[in-house]
Design a protein around this nucleic acid. Structure first.
Lengths: 143, 143
DNA sequence: ATAAAAACATGATATTAATCATATTTAAGA
DNA sequence: TCTTAAATATGATTAATATCATGTTTTTAT
């Protein structure tokens, strides 16, 4: 469903949500160790997220990646979109170009409600929402 | 969500459901043209499905692929499993090994209901069910 | 029996996604 | 202002999927 890249990106952003702010930044080396994703790989993803303003960063000594208040209000879907692109989650399950509500493919109506629901949730929930659940020990991130 | 291979396989099996039986078989060359998938590629997939008894085939002149009554009662999920493997659809969305109902990842509870629903539907609906919808023009397969 | 027509088995190539490497730019602090 | 520590930009390599090719086996019909 999600690419490895999106999974890694989400883990990284959640880690940033829990452990950083404008004052306390974290550098790629540390985040890589903490979420157990190769340094060079997660670095590339973080740079892309940073360029797209999903996360924040500063260069140089004492620099690193972090989330500001605005970043925390980004949704899960926005991260997925930056990394995987929008169409991936929304295209026809059989890959048919001309599948739609009016002329649905054999599987369309079957899974459409579940999938729409899922997409709406991903578009609604923010990083902050998920971080709060983690802080309350309602959810876990065993990396 | 599904690999190209699974998508092609599903299209092919649905085509077989509509156009073949024990008497009227179709050879890989024709099915390839009809569903618009490269011959050598779909051949490999059909051979795998045949080996796993999801579809039927006979060799030699007048031979080809077809569905028998038993084949028609296979579920969508069984096709996906043969081609993509089982875990692909059911593993944690963040790829976490230790994510489960008791210790869910931040996204688990969010999407779990929708995803379970989707999986159940795929496990329940048979080829025959989908073929019937197509025959009644309730759904379409614009390949 | 034999020739031809089909699937079957196996493996090769190409494309895409995942992973790794490194030179450049920026900012902090001495 | 110089050195160093960090992200950034870019590209190379590796691994996984997708795609293609071909010789082998089986079956039908002559």
């Amino acid at each position: 469903m999600l690419s490895n890249s999106s999974k890694y990106a989400l883990k990284a952003v959640l880690y940033l949500a829990l452990h950083t702010d404008e004052i306390n930044k974290i550098m790629v080396k540390d985040i890589s160790e903490r979420i157990n994703v190769p340094k060079a790989y997660i670095a590339k993803l973080l740079q892309e997220l940073s360029k797209r303003k999903i996360i924040s960063s500063t260069k140089g000594p004492k620099g690193g990646f972090y989330l500001n208040a605005s970043n925390r209000n980004e949704t899960i879907m926005q991260i997925i979109e930056v990394i995987d692109g929008k169409k991936k989650l929304e295209s026809c399950i059989l890959g048919l170009e001309d599948c739609n509500e009016q002329k649905p493919c054999p599987i369309h109506r079957l899974i459409s409600p579940s999938r729409s629901k899922m997409i709406t949730l991903l578009e609604t929930k923010t990083i902050n929402d998920l971080a709060t659940d983690l802080e309350l020990n309602k959810t876990f991130l065993p990396v």
